[in-house]
Design a protein around this nucleic acid. Structure first.
Lengths: 172, 172
DNA sequence: GGCGATTAATCCGTGTACAGATCATTATCG
DNA sequence: CGATAATGATCTGTACACGGATTAATCGCC
């Protein structure tokens, strides 16, 4: 009967589940981000939008979905707010009235410039508890678990920044 | 002027930010969870609630906030739904009418038992791209980044399952 | 024994996440 | 050219996340 299963369940430690640890890690990362950037600055997702649109002016929302790993529905909502606050401007693309061409407003650029250093500080605080010698390995493991890279978490260590521009944000 | 800053910003790769990788990792983890458990089963958070309440019948919502790392507002909302679906029952604690005593209903227990194996499969899929030999190290690093443990990601490797029952869920 | 501090939980407002349906605009092909 | 498919974006509905204000019950302490 279910007695065996029940015993299994009662001894399972949620704290040993990778998924749970990843969730906790994300809570911590956001906590640092907010602590550094402050309440008035962009949220992490808004920061990603500002950064990507700055680096890629004129990109469409679908382009941004790829670049930011924010799904289309969520991104539409985020942009709705950012456009309302005049951080981002949208114009229909000449030649294709379906797509938008996104760009930063002066306010959006200002906000990005203002938050950038703080966001960098937050990133380094995330890895702070990891001994410096192990940080490249940690980055490689994160990249692997995030679905990038070939699974070798040792050699690829320094390469956390490599493109890996393929299988990322797919779903269906 | 802002020229230097702009150059810095334009060369920054979001993909090399630990926070971004953690976010991606979480998306992937949830993707696997949903794929294994299915649309009808509990969400990851609901699973955590079911598991904790099963292991700790009579616990209060505040207890559960600690155990699950779900904040009080969110947990109230999650429980509202779960109570409405009769997965969890709440009774005011005799002797302290402020707190609830939580327990699983027969349906809640059934759902937990039904989802358990699938949830385990999802957990192992998360680490699948990491070579087996590096998995303990990966768990140790996740625990470290999640804010558990002393920061030594090597010796504690095999201990991913150890209690770690201390500095956990604090915030304010 | 009553009054202020604590504690348990909810409510409110804002923001993110994502699947599925819908709508408009191009593209394609016969 | 016209039906149809594909593409870009929105809308709807459900769920999670979290800070701050509020309410209710209990505790502490004089």
């Amino acid at each position: 009967m279910s007695g065996d299963l029940k015993r299994l369940i009662s001894t399972y430690d949620l704290g040993s589940a990778p998924g749970h640890l990843i969730r906790r890690a994300q809570q911590r990362a956001v906590e640092f981000y907010v602590a550094e950037v402050g309440e008035d600055g962009p949220t992490p997702q808004q920061f990603a939008v500002l950064l990507n649109v700055f680096q890629n002016p004129g990109m469409s929302q679908t382009d941004l979905v790829q670049a930011s790993a924010i799904d289309r529905s969520t991104l539409a909502e985020i942009l709705r707010r950012m456009v309302a606050r005049e951080l981002v401007s949208r114009t229909r693309r000449p030649g294709d009235q379906r797509a938008y061409a996104l760009s930063l407003t002066a306010d959006g650029l200002r906000m990005l410039e203002h938050a950038f250093a703080a966001a960098l500080r937050a990133q380094s605080r995330i890895l702070e508890p990891v001994p410096p010698a192990e940080r490249p390995a940690a980055m490689a493991i994160l990249a692997t678990i995030a679905g990038f890279g070939g699974g070798d978490a040792e050699s690829a260590a320094l390469a956390a920044g490599d493109s890996a521009g393929k299988s990322a944000g797919d779903d269906a």
